[in-house]
Amino acid sequence: MATLREIQALVHGVLRRETALDAGALALGVRADRLGIYRGFVAQHVTGILAKLYPTVRALVGEAAWDELALAFFREVPARSWELNACAEPFAAWLDGRVGDGGLHPFLVPLAQVEWEQFAVALAPVEIPDPAGLDRLVLNPTTSALALPYPVVRFLVDRGDDVAALSPATPMPDPGDEVALLFRRHGTHHVGYHQAGDDLLFALKVVAEGVPLVAAADLARVPVARGEAALRRAVAIGLLLGPVESALG
């Protein structure tokens, strides 16, 4: 009689597709069709979560190529977390290793990074302070900054939320450096994503370094009025929290 460990090892081989279904079923003394139910479910959990978390990558790759890609990810990257979504986190890095294969465009890698980050920021276990209760400007604690080799935010903004309109025929953008800022808004929990232009980077600098606006503007050779407008925009979009007046010095 097989031990508990031996039985689990046999099942594992089938679920991970390292052992042929019929051979595994024979060794376990179970029906192959029934064992195949589990083999299908375990792969579908991972491929399903990839489809949920990377809808734009999926649309740009196309249905047939996506299915192959997702199953290859399942085979090559064992799920190492009890949290199903977390198993999809390595997808962008894995995709990076496949760029060039089968016509995968390098833009898909930073796009996948941004799609993952949208999920991670939305559910980050971080409390966002109520801006009304703050007496100084602070950075939204859910903020994530990604340095990207493609203008992903510009691409997403230009195309809106209509993933259905995307296909493998959609033109990919040219390379171009971009810093993407993602953060969860207080109250609504909506995740905003923005290109970090000069104004938002200036606003971040003021808050991160705790420098009064006038001094920061002087250092950056930016008109104070423009600097104040940058702070007000950062507060309006939820990147910074609290009263702008506290930074005016």
């Binding site: 097989a2 039985i7 099942v11 594992h12 679920l15 959990h45 190492r80 009890w82 198993c87």
Partner: peptide
């Protein structure tokens, strides 16, 4: 069981009905 050798299945795999 739902994992083996630190690989998670996110599914409910039955156990053999054994004393062990």
């Amino acid at each position: 069981l739902s994992s083996f050798e630190e690989v998670d299945y996110h599914d409910l795999v039955p156990l053999p009905f054994t004393e062990e």
